[in-house]
Amino acid sequence: MSEIDSEVLESQTKSSAFRRRILGHQGVMIGAAIVLAAVLIALSAPFIAPHDPYYQDLLNRLVPPVWDSRGSWEHILGTDHLGRDYLSRLIYGARISLLIGVGAALISGLIGTVLGVAAGYFGGRVDMVVTFMITVRLSMPVVLVALAVVAIVGGSLQVVIMVLGFLLWDRFAVVMRSSTLQIRSMDYVAAAQAVGCSTTRILTTEIMPNVVNNLIVIATLEIAHAIILEAALSFLGLGVQPPLPSWGLMVSEGKDMMLFEPWLITIPGVALFLLVLAINLLGDGARDITAPENRN
């Protein structure tokens, strides 16, 4: 067998081993299935939602779900206190959760990666400043600051995304800094420096490709983090505002009637729990697969 053939073969077995690791990882498969389903539901919401999520039918308020003896197939998950179809609101709510999760993670990921990579690569004063910024950020109570800013600026989808994006970059910065520090001491980085590559080129072609796995893992976990925080903010009335069908808001609107109609808070709560669980499983699994040594 020629040398090239064996190289091809090796890379093939590598990628198939990688595939086997993904397929053999229960957590990742379950997480991926639920996340994929949530994304599909969110994207096709206008087509699959049985009713208009904002249409109020005051004559049909608080209809219980279909498994209750008072329920009907017309409203499979019942209707809320304004007679809006609960299933449709739940479906549209997936859009809000995912939009906020991904939006906030994009902003915080950008901030955290720039700071973390700069700190890890340049070291010295840059590192000192970034480390200080991380410490300051960690010392600020996230929920309190987020609530206060939303209360002053006014709650809307964009504001919540911005506020969470500007608050949740700490973990990105910490992980990107330590990954970059590790890669920076590699021989191939020294080689690139020796042949006179520009700093931009070293950062984009030598550093970034090697830290991107960790970046994806943190991004996944931060999406889940942002989703859960948005739900908490909206639940407290200082996040996404009515009549948007945010799951946190649905729990909040149902809580006054939860003693008589517990399904009002159970349904959106379970949806939230499942989505966050699935994203976390995906993130934890991604770390097991790409970097098994960081498992614990």
Binding site: A224, F235, G248, V251, P262, I265, F273, D284
Partner: peptide, 22 residues
């Protein structure tokens, strides 16, 4: 621990009220 991390605290609190108090 995986379950615990995914459980929104405000919802967990309400469910506890429904079960333990009511």
């Amino acid at each position: 621990s995986v379950m615990g991390q995914a459980l929104p605290s405000f919802w967990f609190a309400l469910m506890l009220i429904v079960f333990l108090s009511v």
